[in-house]
Each structure stands twice: as C-alpha cells, then as structure tokens.
Write a protein that binds this DNA or RNA. Structure first.
Lengths: 124, 124
DNA sequence: GTAAAGTCTGACATCAGTGTCAGGTTCAAG
DNA sequence: CTTGAACCTGACACTGATGTCAGACTTTAC
C-alpha cells in the first residue's frame, strides 16, 4: 500500500510516517518512480510506534528497541544489549509511575465530575 | 515559605512555579520587597498540578478545574459548569485510553527485557 | 553596613513531534 | 495524452512546558 492508505489505516498523518522513516523506525520499498510502498504489517508497526511515543519514549530509543522485539512473523531479531536493557527497565519503571499518576489524576477528574453532576442529572 | 523552598519540597523548578502563577494555577502573597510567599498547602497543590500536567491536561483546563475541586480545607469551591463537565469527561476518557496504551507499551518493554535477560542473568 | 544567597522580571532558547507550504514528479483513470 | 489526485523533498512554523541568562533588587547572617 502507499503512504496515504497506511496513514489512514494506522490513524496517523502522512507527515508522521515520513518522519518515522527518517528516524529509522519504519522502512519502505520504493516504486520505480520513488514512491513509498508498504507491506501489510506496517500498519501494526505504526500503531506500536505511536503507543511507544505515547508512553514517552523518544524515537532514538524506539529505534533501538524495535529490532529486539519478538517478531510475530518469526523474522530475525536482535538481542538487546545489557545497556539497552538497563535503559528499558528505567523506561518501564517510569511508565509504572506514569500509570500511577494517571490513576490519581483520573480520580481527581472523576471527583469533580461526580460532584458537579450530583443533583444535576443529564444536563437539562 | 519562599519560592525556593516550595520548589524543592514539591520537586519542581523555580521556573515552573513562576510559570504556574502566570497561568493562574497558583497564587502567592508578596512580601514588602515583592518576593513570593506561599502557604503550606501550596506544596500539595503544586504536586497536583504536576500530576494533571502529566495526565496531558493543558494549563488552561487545569486553571478551570482547580477551583471546582473539593477543597480539603473546606474553602469555597465553584461548581463545574456543564461545558466543563463535558470537557473533563473527555479528558477522563482520554486518560483511560492513555492508561490502556501505557499498559500495552509496558508489556512490550517487559517482553523485550525478559527475552534479553533470559539465560543471561545479572549482567556478567 | 557588607557580603552572599535568594529572588525579581523579561527575554530568548530548547525539545521533538507534527502542521503546512512550495514547487515538482508520479500514478491511475478516462 | 491529459487530467487530477497522490506523492516526493526540503524548509520553516508551531506548540507548551521548561531551561537559562542578564541585570537589578531583597533578605539574612555576620
């Protein structure tokens, strides 16, 4: 598929896909005319990249991480270096803290919403 | 307390505290000489602000939200408008999705870490 | 009263991902 | 062959919280 379709199916902008490629997160074949051509599995990869971005990982670290993932297609995958493992462990801990903080914030919002909604049902 | 102490106790930079004030998230008394003076409760407020930032809320929305919080000191608090409730509900849903995504990312990291660590115990 | 540490305002820089625009090329359909 | 949509590269703008610097003032300790 071409870049427009991938962007739509993965729910990101065309701009972002080109950026991912420039950062080494995503590869593409090229047509004779120089246009990008993606395999089916690119969709899942882009979604994964987005999730990792959302988790606060920077593109450089994602670029190191991706080749170490167990490839569902059974493709070859590198073994993470001890240094990378250390970094990823730190990231994992950070994510754990992030989830904890988010849970707190959610409770705060929920409290305000509940308080405001009480005895004032369904906006009328 | 003055701004340096608050920064240290809340774990943020002095710069950030001044920014919060400029955004209307934090108020301060001023000494005769014009220096900021904070009450004890400012510490918790700043920590809360940080959590809300971490949850992806923008300062403007935090500024709307804060006065609607149940004040532990029993201070006066506004009732959230229906519009704000709608927005906050959207934020809450977004946080829920964020937590779900983070959980996915955490699992990805965990998988890579586990795979790399297996049969290669304690970095030697 | 003096020195040192802390604070003030204001301005500019940074980061990283994304938006957007320009000028040109490629592709697919008629 | 032509046309319009999609794509290409490259460049610049933006966002929003935070870092950092300069020059001046305040506070505290001695």
């Amino acid at each position: 598929m071409r870049i427009g379709e991938l962007a739509e199916r993965a729910g990101v902008s065309v701009r972002s896909l080109r950026y991912y490629e420039a950062q080494g997160l995503l590869v593409s074949e090229r047509t004779t005319g120089g246009q990008r051509e993606y395999a089916e599995r690119a969709v899942d990869r882009v979604i994964l990249i987005q999730e990792l971005f959302a988790a606060g990982l920077h593109s450089k670290k994602i670029a190191e991480l991706l080749p170490c993932m167990r490839d569902p297609d059974g493709g070859p995958n590198e073994r993470a270096t001890p240094e990378l493992v250390t970094e990823l462990t730190a990231e994992r801990d950070r994510i754990d803290r992030m989830i904890a903080d988010l849970t707190t914030s959610r409770a705060v919002l929920d409290d305000v919403i509940t308080t405001a909604t009480r005895e004032m049902p369904a906006s009328r």
